[in-house]
Every structure is written in structure tokens, then in C-alpha cells.
Simulated scan of single mutants.
Amino acid sequence: MKSLKEFIIPFVGLKAGKHYFNFDIDDTFLHFFGFDDFNSAEVKVIMELDKKSTLMELSFTASGYVNVNCDVTNEAYNQDIINDMQLVVKFGQEFNDENIDILILPHGEYELNIQQYVYELIVLALPAKRVHPGVEDGTLESEILEKLDELSPKEKDIIEEKDSTDPRWDTLKKLLTDK
């Protein structure tokens, strides 16, 4: 995959200690990964890189919103997202990113590409089920919600269903009481 320049961090020239990097993410970044679930995005990612003599600790924080469609009504709304992630970068014989929290770079490497981590940070911040806030508090007016209310079973239908039993079960219940 092609790399985006702004997400390549040349860490060789950095002094030991903490360094901060800011990234403004929009929908073009997410479309770069082929992720089209968002209508638009406005997310700010702050990365703190703590460089030490033998390793680096990266701390990512994302906050902002993405415009997504509701899973119930398909209405677009802004979903707030807040997420953070920790990553430890060590040096070894060969590249290894099998562990979620640890990245091993080969000795002699001088830069780090963090675009995949930023992408995962944003996508994993979304809830599994996206529900418009107007659906939860009842303020959203939508044809889909009206149709769902029309087709949903009414309380009196549920009560009548509980009261009426199948006569075959009644016969079986008599067997228990006839002992």
C-alpha cells in the first residue's frame, strides 16, 4: 500500500524525551484505505512519542466526529468519537507487527509509518450499532420510524397471546396434575 507522507515519522533525528505530533483527519484519509462507511469525518489525532534509548512509546488520542448513517433509519448524523491507543516500538532482527501492542522494527530503521494505526484508532472508536440520537430520545421524525411503529406488535396483542394457550398444551398440563 502506498504511504502518506505526513504519517511517516523520522525518529532518528529526535532527541530522547517526549515529542508531540498533530494530525487532522478528514474523509479523504479514510477513502485512501477504501473505507466508505463514513459520509464525512473531522477527527483530530494527537500522538505523543516518548523516545528512549532502546525503545519508543507511542500514545495516540483521537477525538472528533464522523458523519455516518443510522442503522435503524438510515438517516445521516454526526457520531462523536473518542479513543486512545498505546504502542511500544522495539528494535530487533526483522519487522514484526503480530502483537497488537508491540511493533518490532529492524535495526537501522530510521522512520516509522503510523497511518495504519491512526486508521484503526478511528474505525475502532465507532460503536457496533450506530443509532441516531433522535431515535433514542424519540425526537426524530422519519417515515421509517413511523412504518416500524405501525408494523410492531401492540401491547394488547402481546397480552392476548400470553392469555391464550394452545389446547394441546392444556391436555399435556392435565397429565401433570392428574397424578
Rank of each mutant, 00 (worst) to 15 (best):
residue 14 L to K: 08
residue 67 N to I: 03
residue 65 Y to F: 11
residue 41 A to C: 10
residue 131 V to W: 00
residue 137 D to N: 15
residue 129 K to R: 08
residue 135 V to F: 03
residue 146 E to S: 12
residue 99 N to I: 11
residue 54 T to G: 07
residue 62 A to E: 01
residue 100 I to A: 13
residue 44 K to E: 13
residue 167 P to H: 11
residue 5 K to G: 03
residue 13 G to L: 04
residue 87 L to H: 03
residue 175 L to T: 10
residue 143 E to L: 12
residue 38 F to I: 08
residue 172 L to D: 00
residue 143 E to I: 11
residue 15 K to I: 03
residue 15 K to V: 06
residue 106 P to Q: 07
residue 44 K to F: 13
residue 170 D to G: 10
residue 177 T to Q: 15
residue 2 K to P: 00
residue 174 K to V: 04
residue 100 I to D: 15
residue 115 Q to F: 04
residue 87 L to P: 07
residue 165 T to M: 13
residue 15 K to R: 10
residue 152 S to A: 15
residue 111 E to Q: 11
residue 156 K to Y: 08
residue 112 L to W: 03
residue 59 S to R: 04
residue 108 G to I: 14
residue 158 I to E: 11
residue 123 V to R: 01
residue 41 A to M: 01
residue 23 F to G: 01
residue 18 K to S: 13
residue 35 F to E: 11
residue 27 D to A: 07
residue 86 Q to C: 10
residue 16 A to C: 00
residue 15 K to E: 15
residue 36 D to N: 15
residue 24 D to F: 08
residue 26 D to L: 01
residue 101 D to T: 12
residue 43 V to S: 06
residue 174 K to N: 12
residue 54 T to F: 08
residue 116 Q to H: 05
residue 42 E to W: 05
residue 83 N to E: 10
residue 90 K to L: 07
residue 8 I to P: 06
residue 123 V to H: 01
residue 36 D to Q: 11
residue 116 Q to R: 06
residue 122 I to Y: 02
residue 102 I to M: 10
residue 86 Q to D: 15
residue 30 L to W: 06
residue 12 V to K: 06
residue 138 G to W: 02
residue 121 L to P: 03
residue 128 A to E: 11
residue 57 E to Q: 11
residue 170 D to S: 14
residue 75 E to N: 10
